[in-house]
Design a protein around this nucleic acid. Structure first.
Lengths: 361, 361
DNA sequence: TTGTATGCGTTATCAG
DNA sequence: CTGATAACGCATACAA
């Protein structure tokens, strides 16, 4: 018993295939025929072939999604949103980690564009090096939307967050806690996100009469936790006089926190630390990382919507901006008050009774 | 200027479309024709339509991948491997998080099966509740492979890890560090993985003359970090006499560690903790979590390979088993030696000079 | 409102 | 080895 096709349905219902097609696509069909068709389709268990439909329509039935690494926890949240929207549209997905094999290799995405292997493209976290990719996509007239680009790209649809406002929120938060000596550690040299986050922070602090010493504006060189860890060593060696440090993203903050903890720094008693992005596993750390979160899932969803709009109706270029939200966890606290902050010796009393000693058998 | 088709190529080369098709699929074509075609194709920039090809071959050109949540860090690693293999085969992918909207909903995957929306299915971490799904797939004769099932499923291809051996490795590791009082905290009640990991651990310890007190075998009820945290509270309330605790996976260990740290437990000095899975971000914690890692990316890759084999040549049922590898990080250490392990008072000396006191402006 | 005929780009079958 | 030609399943002008 073969799978029923549109022809089977037409025959069973005593109408022409084109009528069935129209019915399927919501075009005009008389009420009685409509009823008959819905019945026949149900009893036959018919479902249309998306492959054939796509061929006829000249579509691929799938979109391409490219990102530095598809295991990036930030991207993963995005993917949830993309998945959600895609499921609703019975559309597939092709994934490309630009750094899948350890080094940057956009060849796959270029081939998608060249061969029109996908109906549209979403690029997450595009940087300067993605320019060629964007250019190719625009020239091929392939609908494209970029999410949270860390560089300025004209002529492309953008879904991003308001990083300046996020910086402002951090400034307000830290100032509210009484911090007056605040530092900032940026990511890559030319990162627009870092610049915006810093600007928001600086402006908000300035508004409250607090200046950031230019010597306390650092750069980590990248957005990885490794870079955060390396920076931490440099930071503590130089022993800057700060009560709070803002890192340009969560990954940096993770790496930094780990090294700080290893060095015996108490958080937030000795130093308040805050990141950006709102990665879920930041809540698992001890102390849990205070951060400013992006609505990543929603961003993924909306990016997909925009992309499908563009596929159906090309030409529109628009930017959607989301707010970020302060996620107050445990790594920020009141600024150290009076007295020495250099605890040469600390007393720690475990709250619960730990396991008794192991008998030496 | 339209996109060239196989017909364009045939015409330009002065041969029939069927010849071009054969050439494209690596069938027999005379050398001169071969040369001519490769030339024409290059100058024309021709690339074939996968949609049309799939229609003709009766394929969908994409596979379905289902998992509890596509943001699960374990799955994410798997996805890298899947992505890798898929890219090599120009195949798309449909994603379904079974718990995308907060509750279990396999409807989407059922519809994939019913409508044959995908060429094959990979199910990650299947549990008892996935039985109906598996049954439907088998009945529909849809090629399927399951990765790391936590339940016994016959008649399906399986890619899994050797959990018993992993338990053994943990046993050897802990015994080597001098631990003699070891506890184990399992996941869900009926988890096969938990059982196997425990069995390996127990057997190896027994082999070395160490018994696990049945009272020291706990269950967390699930595999989440929340469950790990809740368990930690119960665990410390009861104050069991242990020097090492093995948790059935990394997520549990994360939750447990956090609570332990909050309670002032030093790790590994007071208690050694170890998990299973080898999630990358376990290395970011302080202390970094010692664990037994699965080669997740490779598992994803191989699962895909098996799936494609099954698609081309159905019928074969085989199980591929991978070894797990001890990943020694910082949360395990020598068992506390002689003397009291109850540090009523501890001295902590920060290794580096922390920031100087903030002046009270 | 419905039916007819044709195209979408490939692959496979079967003669030559 | 190569060339016609019939599927593959659906959408859509165009005619009725």
């Amino acid at each position: 018993m073969k799978k029923p096709t549109i022809a089977t349905v037409a025959q069973q219902a005593g109408v022409a295939v084109s009528t069935v097609s129209r019915y399927l696509n919501g075009h005009y069909v008389s009420a009685p025929v409509q009823a008959r068709l819905s019945e026949v389709i149900a009893t036959l268990g018919y479902s249309r072939s998306w492959t054939a439909r796509n061929l006829s329509l000249g579509r691929r039935g799938c979109i391409g999604v490219a990102v530095d690494s598809s295991s990036d926890p930030w991207f993963v949240q995005l993917l949830m949103g993309i998945e959600e929207e895609l499921a609703a549209r019975d559309t597939g997905l092709m994934l490309s980690s630009l750094e899948l094999r350890g080094q940057y290799d956009p060849a796959l995405v270029f081939s998608w564009i060249r061969d029109r292997r996908v109906d549209g493209l979403v690029l997450a976290k595009s940087q300067r090096r993605e320019r060629a990719l964007l250019k190719a996509a625009v020239e091929a007239q392939l609908p494209t939307v970029i999410i949270a680009p860390d560089e300025i790209f004209p002529d492309v649809q953008v879904v991003r967050c308001n990083n300046t406002a996020a910086g402002t929120a951090v400034g307000a938060h830290l100032a509210g806690l009484g911090h007056r000596r605040v530092g900032f550690a940026g990511g890559p040299e030319h990162s627009i996100d870092s610049k915006h986050r810093l600007r928001g922070l600086r402006d908000e602090l300035a508004r409250r009469g607090i200046q950031i010493d230019p010597a306390h504006i650092f750069t980590c060189g990248s957005y990885t936790s490794e870079a955060g860890g390396e920076f931490a060593h440099r930071f503590f060696e130089s022993g800057p006089d700060l009560t709070a440090l803002v890192l340009a993203n969560d990954a940096l903050a993770f790496g930094f926190t780990r090294v700080a903890l290893q060095r015996g720094i108490r958080m937030p008693q000795d130093l308040s630390v805050i990141g950006f992005d709102g990665l879920p596993h930041g809540a698992l750390f001890c102390p849990a990382l205070t951060t400013v979160s992006q609505p990543m899932r929603e961003m993924g969803r909306i990016a997909c919507c925009r992309l499908f709009e563009a596929i159906e109706n090309p030409g529109r270029i628009e930017t959607t901006e989301f707010p970020m939200a302060l996620l107050e966890r445990e790594s920020t606290g009141p600024a150290p008050g009076t007295g020495s902050r250099l605890p040469a010796l600390r007393l720690v009393i475990p709250p619960a009774s730990p396991p008794a000693p192991a008998p030496t058998e």
